[in-house]
Amino acid sequence: MAQVIAPVPTAEIALRSTAPWIIRARRLLRSSRPYYAALGLCMFFGAWFLLVDVFKVWRFRELPGLVPSVKEWLSPDPVYGVSIFTAEYYSHIWASVYRVYSAFISATILGIAIGVLMGWSRVFRGLTFPILEMLRPIPILAWIPLAILLVPGREAPIIGLTFLAAFFVTILNTLLGVRSIDEVYFRAARSLGFSNTAILFHVIVPGALPYIFIGLQIAMGACWFSLVAAEIVSGQAGLGYKVWETYYYVQYETMVIIMATLGLLGYLSSALVRFVGKRLMRWRVRLLAGV
């Protein structure tokens, strides 16, 4: 039969010779985004430095200065015992990271499973949706006493509370994701002879993935938030516990170090979720498919 023009864009062939991350890095440096980001951070730290260190403005002079805090953070021999050179610093980080990730991962697995079930089965959705909607708005702080009563030990209640925060968000977003899939894909799959299992793995899960990852980003934020709350109340280690302890013992530089560490870890965690999401949803990146 007559040849129809094969749609291979020539630009794609030209681009293939350069590694995709180099192309992306170049594009990023040409855009204004990184420069604005740098400027914004400079403004923030500059304001801190001027308000506290230099002019000692009213109320602000009680706060730890930028320079002493950074010095303390980078000091091999910190005044209050916590810096990047001390084991204690990393033990708190590890305690919190371990709790957040074990809670986040189990909430992801369980939340997606239940969300998919709710999206798929009308009976299950009817049964569980009111329960979800009733439990979801209860603030995590209100769960703390119940968690301590219900869950034995000191570690488990903290992980449980962190889990809970992520769990509801993940369920709801997965459910919305499944409901958002156009009926036509289910029809096409059934027409093509897909089994229910195949529909689950090739239609429902990938189709709901964009919503699921929006949920996971929110869930990650919720995890850090409720972790710190839980640690403040019942922890013996961890960054949330340490923030409160340093306040109690008037070690304000260390308090700032811990807060900054929480901010950085939260940022990195969200970036990780975004990165995994992009990897799994390459089909949404219209350019350079198949790279």
Binding site: D182, Y185, A188, S191, L192, H202, P206, G207, M281, A289
Partner: peptide, 19 residues
Amino acid sequence: PGADRIVVFQQGALFPWKT
């Protein structure tokens, strides 16, 4: 529904998440 009567849909139903 079955593969002996395949439908090509108005709005298109290629799975966008698959190659």
